[in-house]
Structure formats: C-alpha cells, structure tokens
Amino acid sequence: MSARYVYECPYYIRYRSDKKEMHCEGSILYFKSADDRARWLSRYCCNHPGWMECSNAKRMTEFYEEDAHD
C-alpha cells in the first residue's frame, strides 16, 4: 500500500516500509504487514484527535506534563 499521510501526532518520527516498523518518540512499533501499519497510521498518527488515544502518545504527553511541573 503506497499512500501519503498528513501526520497529526507530535511524537511521530518516521516509518520504514522495508521493515514494517514505525519510529515514534519513545518507542518503535513493529507490524506484521504494511496494511496493518497503514491502519494504525490512519487511526492514530494521521487522525485528529485520534492520535491522543494512542498508548505511546498518552505516555509521552504524561511524561512531558510531569516534567513541566517539576
């Protein structure tokens, strides 16, 4: 699946189509197929406000909010 995306998530870094993996701040996600990765991108990374429901995005947001209060 070849598609262009508009990324909403501020923690998204890049994806590697050859390895079916996606790099985000704080994690690397591995997928069984390019279609699985495309579904994830559509549901979370390229979706506003869907990106805020991603477990990694929630964790990173909490991390930065805690750091801001210290």
Score class of each variant (00 low, 15 high):
Ile13Ser: 07
Asp35Met: 08
Met52Ala: 13
Asn47Met: 07
Ser33Pro: 09
Glu65Asn: 04
Glu65Tyr: 01
Arg59Asn: 10
Lys32Ser: 15
Met52His: 14
Arg59Pro: 07
Arg43Tyr: 03
Arg14Lys: 07
Leu41Trp: 03
Lys20Pro: 05
Ala57Gly: 13
Leu41Phe: 07
Val6His: 12
Leu41His: 05
Lys58Met: 15
Val6Met: 11
Tyr15Ala: 09
Ser2Val: 08
Tyr30Cys: 13
Ser17Arg: 10
Arg59Phe: 09
Tyr15Pro: 01
Arg59Thr: 11
Lys58Gln: 15
Cys54Lys: 01
Lys32Gly: 12
Glu25Cys: 01
His23Gln: 07
Cys45Thr: 00
Glu21Tyr: 07
Pro10Leu: 02
Arg59Ile: 06
Asp35Ile: 12
His23Pro: 01
Lys19Pro: 06
Tyr12Thr: 04
Ala57Asp: 10
Gly26Met: 09
Phe31Gln: 02
Tyr5Ala: 07
Tyr64His: 13
Lys58Phe: 14
Leu29Trp: 03
Asp36Asn: 05
Arg14Ser: 08
Pro10Gln: 03
Asn56Val: 06
Ser17Val: 07
Ala3Cys: 02
Arg37Ile: 01
Tyr30Ala: 15
Glu53Tyr: 14
Met60Pro: 04
Tyr5Asp: 05
Asn56Asp: 05
Asp18Gly: 10
Cys24Asn: 01
Val6Ala: 09
Arg16Thr: 06
Ala68His: 06
Arg4Ala: 14
His69Val: 04
Lys58His: 14
Tyr12Phe: 14
Arg4Lys: 11
Leu41Ser: 03
Ala38Ser: 07
Met1His: 08
Met60Thr: 06
Tyr5Trp: 12
Ala68Gln: 14
Thr61Pro: 10
Ala68Cys: 11
Phe31Trp: 05
Met22Thr: 01
Asn47Arg: 12
Tyr44Asp: 00
Met1Asp: 11
Ser2Met: 08
Glu8Asp: 12
Pro49His: 09
Asp18Glu: 15
Met1Glu: 10
Pro49Gly: 13
Lys58Ile: 15
His69Glu: 10
Arg43Cys: 03
Pro10Ser: 08
Glu62Phe: 08
Arg4Met: 08
Asp70Gln: 09
